[in-house]
């Protein structure tokens, strides 16, 4: 009972603090902008901890976050091996291959109006399909090691990036292209100096969507067979052997990796497309 009352009090206090922070004179400073969501996140963790302890939920169903943290600290070696296998070998390699392939294909398609018209609707359609379903087929083709995981990731990230890049390459208007003409710029000059920079916001949009898909693909592919390491392998065997706290530690790692991956791409985007209205900051 004391746990329940405790977390309710904490919740009320944290919420009140957030309300005060947001309506205070410092609401627009960076510190407050970061502090408010962090406080909200801490509140959720405290609620989770308190509810699990207060209601005496079995650890086999839902371990409290503090215990997950302990397991995380104890098994960093294991988690690191899984991280290397799934993220560095599977997801990242697949992401790079898929992104480069999609970019090159987009440039080729873009040269032909006919292909653009034919491939764009199909690409849009395929991007909406549940492509994760091909995971068992690709695991069958490429074997259990990281190659099949990278292949699944390639297939999953290819279409969102392709569609976005093709759309981005069409972003320049006639005036801008005419200007390049008056400069006597050739196809490649126009491409490098005008069209690819103009396409960057779209390309990064595709890349950001693809970061999540890459992790999903790499983890799902491991459910269909993998060497005895990897995040997906650990999760599926962890659920079976009731070491749920280890599973939550893996989920914690995957959340961390997913956010970091997205953050890195968003950071690069900010550097590359600093000129775009959505990235400009009022000074």
């Amino acid at each position: 009972m004391i746990w329940i009352i405790g977390i309710l009090v904490f919740w009320a206090l944290a919420w009140a603090a957030n309300v005060r922070l947001v309506h205070s004179a410092y609401a627009d400073t960076t510190a407050v902008r970061i502090a408010v969501p962090v406080l909200f996140g801490i509140t959720i963790l405290v609620l989770w901890e308190g509810l699990v302890r207060g209601f005496g939920v079995s650890q086999i169903i839902l371990p409290p976050p503090s215990q997950v943290l302990v397991v995380f600290a104890q098994s960093t070696d294991l988690l690191w091996v899984d991280f290397v296998q799934t993220v560095l070998k599977g997801a990242l390699r697949g992401f790079l291959i898929g992104a480069c392939a999609a970019f090159v294909v987009a440039l080729l398609i873009d040269r032909s109006v006919f292909l653009t018209r034919g491939l764009l609707p199909i690409g849009n359609f395929v991007a909406a399909l549940p492509i994760v379903g091909v995971a068992p087929i690709l695991v069958n083709w490429f074997g259990f090691d990281w190659h099949s995981k990278a292949a699944v990731v390639v297939v999953m990230v290819f279409f969102p990036i392709l569609v976005n890049t093709v759309q981005g390459l069409r972003e320049t208007d006639a005036m801008q292209r005419d200007l390049m003409r008056t400069y006597a710029a050739g196809y490649f000059q126009t491409l490098l100096k005008l069209r690819i920079p103009a396409a960057m916001p779209f390309i990064f949009n595709g890349l950001k969507i693809a970061t999540t898909l890459a992790l999903i693909g790499a983890i799902v592919a491991e459910y269909f067979g993998s060497p005895t390491r990897g995040m997906g392998f650990r999760i599926s065997t962890g659920v079976g052997s009731l070491s749920i706290d280890l599973v939550w530690a893996e989920i914690f790692v995957s959340a961390l990796v997913g956010s970091a991956f997205y953050g890195v791409v968003a950071w690069i985007e900010k550097r590359v497309t600093f000129w775009h209205p959505s990235q400009r900051q009022a000074k």
Binding site: T212, L215, I216, I219, I235, I244, V247, I251, S254, S259
Partner: peptide, 10 residues
């Protein structure tokens, strides 16, 4: 950014 497949079994 959290891969949902990791959460699905849980």
């Amino acid at each position: 950014t959290v891969p949902i497949v990791a959460l699905a079994p849980m």
